[in-house]
Amino acid sequence: MKFRCERDALLEALTTTGRAAGTRGGYQLVLSGVHMALSGDDLTLTATDRELTITVHLKVAGAMDGETVVTARLISDVVRSLDAGAVNVEVNDGGIDVESARSSFSLQTMSAEDFPKMTALEDEPVVLEAGNLTAALRQVVKAASTDESRPVLTGVLLSAEQGGLRMVTTDSYRLALCDLPELELLGSEPSVLVPSRSIQEVLRLLEDSDNITLRFSDREASFGIGSITVATRLIEGEFPSYQGLIPTHQPNRLTMNRESLISAVRRVRLMAQDSTPIRLDMSSAGLDLSATTQDVGAAREQMDAVYEGEDLTVAFNPEYLLDGAEAATGEEVVLNTVDALKPAVLRIPESEDFLYLLMPVRIN
Rank of each mutant, 00 (worst) to 15 (best):
A291K: 12
L203I: 02
S81L: 04
N336S: 14
D93Y: 02
P251K: 14
G187E: 12
M167T: 04
V69W: 04
N132C: 00
N364W: 06
G309P: 08
L29M: 11
T48N: 12
E113K: 02
T17N: 12
A136W: 02
G33T: 00
R253C: 10
R279W: 08
T23E: 15
G94E: 15
L29P: 09
D323I: 02
T53R: 08
G297Y: 14
V345P: 10
L270K: 12
F316A: 02
R266Q: 15
A325M: 04
E301A: 05
Q28A: 11
P247K: 13
S172T: 13
S222N: 12
Q200V: 09
Y173M: 09
H35S: 10
L180C: 14
Q108S: 12
V156G: 11
R266V: 12
E350T: 10
L177M: 15
E319M: 01
S209E: 13
T44Q: 14
L10R: 01
S209F: 05
L280F: 14
S103M: 03
A37K: 10
A325P: 03
D210K: 07
V70E: 05
D353Y: 10
T44F: 03
S32M: 06
A144W: 03
C178E: 15
G330E: 01
S100I: 00
A86V: 09
F354V: 13
L58V: 07
R80S: 14
S39F: 07
L165M: 15
T71A: 09
Q294A: 15
A63Y: 06
A264N: 10
E122K: 14
A264P: 09
T134N: 11
F216G: 11
R197T: 12
P195Q: 13
G163W: 12
Q302L: 07
Q139Y: 00
L193C: 13
P251D: 15
S290F: 04
R19M: 10
E331G: 00
R215I: 12
F354A: 12
L234A: 13
R7S: 11
A221Y: 02
L11W: 06
K117E: 04
E308N: 05
A47I: 03
Q243Y: 07
